[in-house]
C-alpha cells in the first residue's frame, strides 16, 4: 500500500517534470497563454468590482465577502485550465484515436494515469493572483482567521477540486458512448459562471438544482463561507458526501465503459 502510494506520487511529479520540460521547449506559447489567463482574471475582478462598487452587497454577501469568493473562485479556476482541461481533452482524444489502448495495458490505475498526465503552467500566475487578493482582502476586511478555518478552507478547496474533476471525468467518459462530440470538453468549463456567484443568487428551482441536485454553486461558495465563518455544517457534510459518492460513481462508470470500448476499428 505504502509502496504503491509512493509509486503514484512519484509518477504524478514525473509528469509535472515532463510538462515543464515541454514548456521550456515552447516558451512563446507559455507567455501568450499566461497573458490571456491574466487578462481574464483582471477583467473578471474589474467586472465584479464595478457591480459591488455600486451596490455594496450581492445576495447577502458584502464587498469583502464577495472578494473572498471571487479570489477563491480564481484559485479554483486556475486548476480548471491548468489541469483538468488538458487531461480531459487528451483523455477524450485518446478514446477517439485509439491511443487509449496503450494506457489500458499498463500496470497502473488507468483512471489515475488518464487524469494526471497533462498540465500546463500558464495559470500558475493566476492562482497566486487569487491567493494574493484573498490574503489582502482578509487583512483589510479584518476577518479573524482561525487555524480550523484555514484547514477547513484547504480541505474544502480540495473537495471542490475533486468535485470538478469527478464531474468532468464523468462527462468525458460519455465519449465512449457517442459517435462524436466536438465540444464535450467545453461543457464543464461553460458552467463556471455558476460557480463564481454566491450560492444565494439562485432562488426557487434553480437553487435546488445548483445546490442540491448538481451542486455547482457550492464549488467556490462553501470554501469561502468557511473562511468567513458563516458555513453551515449541513451544507458542508452534504457537499462532501455528494462528492464522495460521485467519485465512486465515476469509477464505476469508467470501468463499465471500458468494457464496451473496442478501440478504433483497427
Amino acid at each position: 500500500m505504502w509502496k504503491s502510494l509512493k509509486k503514484y506520487w512519484f509518477i504524478f511529479w514525473k509528469f509535472r517534470a515532463i510538462r515543464f520540460m515541454m514548456l521550456l521547449e515552447y516558451r512563446g506559447n507559455f507567455w501568450f497563454w499566461a497573458f490571456v489567463s491574466l487578462m481574464w482574471t483582471v477583467f473578471n475582478f474589474f467586472f465584479f468590482d464595478l457591480i459591488i462598487g455600486a451596490r455594496n452587497e450581492l445576495a447577502g454577501w458584502n464587498k469583502t465577502e464577495m472578494y473572498v469568493l471571487i479570489s477563491t473562485f480564481t484559485m479554483l479556476d486556475a486548476f480548471t485550465w491548468s489541469f483538468f482541461y488538458h487531461n480531459m481533452r487528451d483523455y477524450i482524444a485518446s478514446i477517439f484515436n485509439g491511443q487509449l489502448t496503450i494506457t489500458l495495458t499498463r500496470p497502473i490505475n488507468s483512471q489515475f494515469l488518464l487524469s494526471v498526465q497533462n498540465n500546463s503552467y500558464t495559470n500558475v500566475v493566476r492562482f497566486f493572483v487569487g491567493l494574493g487578493i484573498l490574503i489582502v482582502t482578509l487583512r483589510n476586511g479584518q476577518i479573524p482567521l482561525t487555524l480550523a478555518g484555514v484547514i477547513g478552507f484547504a480541505l474544502f478547496f480540495f473537495i471542490s477540486l475533486l468535485f470538478v474533476y469527478t464531474l468532468w471525468f464523468i462527462v468525458a467518459t460519455c465519449s465512449f458512448w457517442v459517435d462524436r462530440l466536438d465540444n464535450i470538453n467545453e461543457l464543464v468549463p461553460s458552467t463556471r459562471r455558476v460557480w463564481q456567484v454566491p450560492k444565494e443568487v439562485f432562488t426557487g428551482f434553480a437553487s435546488t438544482f445548483f445546490s442540491v441536485l448538481l451542486p455547482l454553486s457550492l464549488i467556490a461558495s462553501l470554501p469561502s463561507e468557511i473562511l468567513l465563518g458563516r458555513a453551515s455544517f449541513q451544507w458542508l457534510a452534504y457537499y462532501a458526501v455528494f462528492t464522495a459518492v460521485l467519485f465512486w460513481l465515476a469509477h464505476l462508470f469508467f470501468t463499465f465503459s471500458i468494457r464496451k470500448y473496442s478501440g478504433v476499428a483497427n
Binding site: I51, E186, V201, T203, A206
Partner: peptide, 24 residues
Amino acid sequence: LNFVFWRLRQMLGTFTSLTFWSVV
C-alpha cells in the same frame, strides 16, 4: 448531441446572467 450541447451551453450562460442581474 453536438448541437444539443452547444445550445445547452448558450442557454446556461443566458440563464446565469439573468439570474445574476435579477439578484443585483
